[in-house]
């Protein structure tokens, strides 16, 4: 497409006539995402204090759910202990087996892509602000063309939300010497909120919107699909907010379960 018969001057890094504090947004994204990555990696490598059960509750940290391999008293799915195929020279934590799922969902998410290209790669640093590099390939070629894998990571991420909802349900049951009783603790609310927020983020994703009906030009004759599309579209309009709130909440959920399991805090609850 040789339509351009002109040459424009190259501008330098940070060159802009903008007067507003344009650097606040990319800096905030950089700090919050970096903070989350550091905390999530630390929490995932701990391999302990991810299940609070000492006082009859059943609170499982979302970083460790589904718990494929766990200790005897924990709600593991496959087996107790460390998987046999796990290399002995590597430290093991159950979170290592599953965090790749939600991690890839966020990494390839259309919203986060735009945000971290700015905050971590300065491409662009901010709108109408000069960039550090002349060369640019975008998502038109390798490696970033691989971001198109987003639709494949959506389905596992949706399954994770279902598992977390189940965890939220389990958090409504408390065990004592007389048996298991229904109740609501702060932890129950934290876990259920976590599943709902992650659901709002995951099911409002652009891929979900496309798969549910966006790929069609006519939905008028498909009332159920049309309703589903409208719901996903409504979530999608606030995708950025869901993305941030769910990110912060999932870290806080892990922190709550961790502190409770370590005995630093008390879980207030009403048992019926």
């Amino acid at each position: 497409m040789s339509n351009a018969d002109f040459h424009l001057p190259q501008r330098g890094l940070g060159s802009t006539a903008r007067r507003d504090r344009w650097w606040v947004q990319p800096l905030t994204v950089f700090c919050v995402l970096s903070g989350f990555i550091v905390y999530a990696t630390w929490a995932a490598l701990q391999g302990k204090h991810y299940f609070a059960h000492a006082n009859g509750e059943h609170y499982l940290s979302p970083f460790y759910s589904p718990l494929l391999y766990g200790a005897e008293h924990e709600p593991y799915w496959i087996a107790q202990g460390v998987p046999k195929w796990w290399p002995s020279f590597l430290p093991f934590s159950p979170a290592m087996l599953i965090l790749i799922g939600p991690g890839l969902m966020r990494f390839t998410c259309y919203y986060y892509r735009g945000a971290y290209y700015k905050a971590f790669w300065a491409d662009p640093l901010s709108c109408a602000v000069g960039e550090p590099r002349k060369g640019y390939r975008g998502e038109n070629s390798f490696p970033l063309i691989m971001q198109n894998v987003h639709r494949y990571v959506f389905y596992p991420a949706a399954a994770f939300v279902m598992v977390l909802l189940y965890d939220g349900y389990k958090a409504l049951w408390f065990t004592d010497a007389e048996g298991t009783h229904f109740g609501v603790g702060v932890g129950s609310i934290v876990l259920i909120m976590n599943a709902l927020l992650l659901g709002g983020y995951t099911f409002g994703c652009h891929c979900a919107r496309h798969q549910i009906g966006g790929f069609l030009n006519s939905l008028a004759k498909r009332p159920i699909r049309s309703k589903c599309y409208a719901c996903v579209n409504a979530l999608n309009k606030r995708h950025m907010y869901w993305a941030w709130v769910s990110l912060v909440w999932v870290a806080l959920t892990d922190l709550y379960v961790r502190l409770l399991s370590m005995g630093y805090i008390t879980d207030f609850r009403i048992i019926f």
């Binding site: 497409m1 919203y111 892509r113 735009g114 290209y117 709108c127 998502e139 970033l144 652009h206 999608n236």
Partner: peptide, 25 residues
């Protein structure tokens, strides 16, 4: 020919649109 792959979804276009078209989304 139009290379949509070059767009890295930074949403600057959406922010400046005077007609408030959600260009990116």
């Amino acid at each position: 020919e139009n290379a949509i792959g070059y767009c890295n979804i930074t949403k600057c276009c959406t922010k400046v649109c005077p007609e408030h078209i959600a260009i990116t989304d």
